[in-house]
């Protein structure tokens, strides 16, 4: 009996890794426009109810909210222009790469700002359940860590070609960051103190014909541990073993996708920031971030 359970468990985990994207896309659920009229949408993140938050990094006023129930968009927090990366942390505050002000901040739902670190060209971030903030600084090839006790550490430097998107595994033991200036998505082991070890170009993105860089951008994590990484070709999906299992085409063929997140009340709508618009697509899998 014990052996049977063991072998079933092994098979189940192997099967979860082996699924193709054809198994979680529906032909009857194409991309749908979710919001429009912005300059350059970015910074997608989600709350527990499935409401989507985003920014208009080049023209907007602050943080916008797309309501999971009504599908309507409101300006949620004003006077915070130029945020490029956003997530809600374990303390219920927003954590943001305030790119325009070259600082990383935490923001309460009422808009009270705490500066965590300044003087950095921060791009995108992820916050662990332990409260560690990891963010990319694209031009300096750095991955930064602000520990839960607010200590700043350069967690990796000089390895990742223009680090851009950043996300974390569901067991919060692996951090991954996409290359905007290369073709890899790097992975590190997260030690107990939050520091990073064992960095390697663990995943390889598919390249557009005739190009040497994939233009990897914002990334998120699916609940079973797949990584969804935006790129010039579309949303590239990697299984937990780091294998490219498929690419979801962009909603607009000659447009961009620069940020992605699962939202909606069931967390099964994949939203992408695509220039002046947001699009969403219903998948048969759900997001990790809640």
């Amino acid at each position: 009996m014990k052996h049977l359970f063991l072998s079933l468990a092994l098979l189940t985990s192997a099967a979860a890794q082996d699924t193709s994207l054809h198994e979680y896309l529906s032909d009857s659920e194409p991309w749908k426009e979710a919001a429009s009229g912005y300059a350059f949408t970015d910074g997608l993140c989600v709350d527990e109810a499935g409401n989507l938050f985003f920014t208009d990094v080049k023209g907007g006023k602050g943080i916008y909210k797309l309501d999971a129930a009504s599908g309507k968009v409101d300006l949620f927090l004003d006077n915070l222009p130029g945020i490029s990366g956003l997530q809600i942390g374990p303390d219920g505050r927003f954590y943001a790469c305030h790119n325009k002000e070259q600082r990383v901040i935490a923001i309460t739902m009422k808009g009270e700002v705490e500066v965590l670190h300044s003087g950095v060209k921060c791009n995108d971030l992820v916050v662990s359940k332990a409260g560690n903030v990891y963010f990319t600084e694209t031009p300096t090839q750095m991955i930064h860590l602000i520990t839960k006790d607010k200590k700043h550490i350069v967690a990796d430097q000089g390895h990742v070609a223009k680090p851009n998107g950043i996300t974390i595994s569901p067991d919060e033991r692996t951090l991954v960051a996409s290359e905007h200036g290369g073709k890899h998505v790097w992975a590190w082991h997260i030690e107990d103190d939050g520091t990073l070890t064992g960095g390697a170009p663990f995943m390889t993105m598919w390249l557009p014909v005739g190009k040497e860089t994939a233009s990897g951008d914002g990334a998120t994590t699916e609940s079973k541990g797949r990584y969804f990484v935006t790129s010039e070709l579309g949303v590239q999906i990697f299984d937990p073993a780091g294998r490219l299992s498929g690419i979801i085409a962009k909603p607009v063929a000659d447009g961009k996708v620069v940020s992605c997140e699962f939202a909606g009340k069931d967390h099964d709508l994949l939203f992408v920031a695509a220039g002046d618009k947001l699009f969403s697509r219903k998948l048969k899998v759900t997001g990790y971030f809640r």
């Binding site: 595994s169 033991r173 692996t174 992975a187 082991h189 064992g198 663990f202 937990p240 780091g242 294998r243």
Partner: peptide, 21 residues
């Protein structure tokens, strides 16, 4: 594999990176 301090955690496997590359 990338070992962790917690024996209950499943260590990330580096197999595909090492073998399929």
């Amino acid at each position: 594999t990338f070992p962790t301090s917690n024996p209950k955690e499943k260590a990330r496997s580096n197999r595909s990176f090492e073998y399929d590359s």
